[in-house]
Design a protein around this nucleic acid. Structure first.
Lengths: 332, 332
DNA sequence: CTCCTTTGTGGAATCGATTCCAAAACGACC
DNA sequence: GGTCGTTTTGGAATCGATTCCACAAAGGAG
């Protein structure tokens, strides 16, 4: 039993294909009797309009794609939840795909926008160089979220990473931090901005950073432990560490605790993101809250504007406010 | 500048549309000179074949969809990584969509299979009733993973949840557990199977369960804390608790520790999944390792068979071996 | 040089839903 | 009953890539 087509429905209902299509799309100019006949035929044949045929004719898919390196991140999943909810309100389906940081796979997914498989694209952490993002943004419906390339043509939503890192570092200093260390990443742009914010806050307090440790690879719990272990071997021992994410901070806290030192007594630790990891950690982490859900919503709204208005869409970046969340991993 | 079509490319290259298409699809019967001319025209016009037109004609999309309630779960993301990698090897793109446990949104996503937006579907935790899964599986390319409905026609990959729960409960008893408690969920089928395994192991040891606590809603860190708090108010106080996930177990451990009791000294705690949470917890959790990546791979392979072979596909369920991982949250 | 095979090419038909245009059906009103 | 709107309908054209068929060109064998 092959798939039923609009022709089959028309024949069964005793009307024309035009009428069937009009019923399907809720056109007002259809008599009640036709509507009923068509509805009956559709049910009888278990008919569904074929997406590719509809998309071809209409020249849009009502689908968008959201790209990220990986899915297992509280911030990413929350951002995509916000974007997905906002998209649903406008009748769009949001699909998500991980790139695994692989250029080729990312390219393949971006091609889905180029070849019309989806109408728009939300990029979380592009692996491609900034110039490519810029070029894409000029011709295609793309917005960025959290990780924003320096691209004039593109729109992006994020917090002010530099300011946020500045704020939390200042908090570390205010609560007694003098020998300042940072564990971060330079792979992501946000990581570099956080480094800047950290350095600025330290300098402003008349101090200088004692230790800066970075990873080029994963930025997870194990990386946090590894770098913290390294840190504990250095002198002078820091009394405050700013970590680029909660997960890394949790690894750092764990390593410090295992070494017999106390957090925050001996070393204060600050995280970033205010994910569930911050609450799971003992002691609970002082961190920066990102309005991830709202960022996702805003990203979709900007994307919608880009998709529907040919030219008058928003460009540049928008910052959403972050918030310092003080918990027990820093001195009160 | 509107999108270039195959016609435009043909005109620019001075060949026919047939030849362009043959070049695009790597047909061998094309001269080198035509190949070069077409390639040049494609580059010049920045041409990409339109997906909907191609899909319509070919009657397949080379895309599959993976559904789950939410994305922020180590098991889910690992399963989908396995499925995605396997799919990529066969030239398929894997798209992921969260249902948020919403029937309507789930239906909308399942419709993407019905209307040919994708060629196949991997379902993680269906919200729909088993009968619907069964009915879908009969006519459509669907496989299930981890959470498997009792559906004859469908294929599913998972571990043997009952046996795994049995194994870890037996370990709790072997290492001194007498007053046995469980914190679980009955919303998911796997949760019910784990309950069965727990009960069986307890009964087999000549004991009977002291406390069984379940949540109908979220099954996360906070739920773990809430149920553990409740548990600590009950008498007799348990000396061993089996939790249905690592995240819940982490919440449970946290609540017990905060109450001034020791894990595992006063109360032993076991988790499930061997996610990163098991390692982040203090003490690290004894748990059950699920071969999530392999489950994803296998799920895709079964799906591929279902999509390509009209009838001779696999049915029923396949169990992959689990593994008891002993750490510090249970007595040595 | 002819005949036959191979290799390459052009172009029309096709996939299935939508949409536009023209025409039919239906009322209402005189 | 005829005229003039207003609904409603039928059906052809369309979207863009693929594929099949027929035919042309090139090469090889005799």
């Amino acid at each position: 039993m092959a798939r039923a087509t609009v022709q089959d429905v028309a024949r069964t209902a005793g009307v024309s294909v035009g009428t069937v299509s009009r019923v399907l799309n809720g056109s007002p100019a259809v008599s009640e009797s036709s509507k009923a006949k068509v509805a009956a035929a559709i049910r009888q044949l278990n008919y569904r309009p074929l997406a590719s045929a509809r998309d071809l004719r209409r020249d849009r898919t009502m689908r968008i794609l959201a790209l990220a390196k990986n899915l297992y991140s509280p911030v990413i999943s929350e951002v995509f939840r916000g974007a997905g909810d906002a998209a649903a309100l406008s009748g769009y389906v949001t699909l998500i795909a991980p790139t695994a940081g692989d250029r080729e796979r990312e390219q393949q997914l971006v091609d889905m926008l180029r070849n019309g498989s989806v109408d728009g694209l939300i990029m979380f952490s592009p692996t491609m160089p900034d110039e490519d993002v810029e070029e894409m943004a000029e011709q295609l419906s793309v917005v960025q979220v959290c990780e924003i390339a320096d691209a004039e043509a593109a729109f992006g939503v994020s917090i002010d990473d530099r300011q946020a890192a500045f704020d939390i570092t200042r908090h570390l200093i205010r609560t007694g931090g003098r020998r300042m260390a940072m564990i971060g990443t330079r792979v992501a742009r946000s990581g570099r901005l956080r480094e800047e914010g950290f350095r600025r806050a330290v300098a402003e307090a008349g101090l200088s950073p004692d230790h800066m440790l970075f990873t080029d690879g994963d930025f997870d719990f194990h990386a946090g432990r590894r770098l913290a272990r390294e840190l504990l071997g250095l002198r002078p021992l820091p009394d405050a560490v700013f970590c680029g994410s909660d997960t890394v901070a949790a690894g750092c806290v764990r390593e410090i605790t295992d070494a017999g030192l106390r957090v925050p007594g001996d070393i204060a630790v600050a995280g970033f993101d205010d994910s569930i990891q911050a609450e799971m950690c003992v002691p609970e982490l002082t961190t920066i809250r990102q309005p991830a859900y709202a960022m996702g919503q805003l990203a979709f709204e900007a994307l919608l504007a880009r998709m529907t208005e040919p030219e008058g869409y928003r460009r540049g970046r928008t910052f959403l406010p972050h918030e310092l969340v003080v918990r027990d991993s820093t001195n009160g």
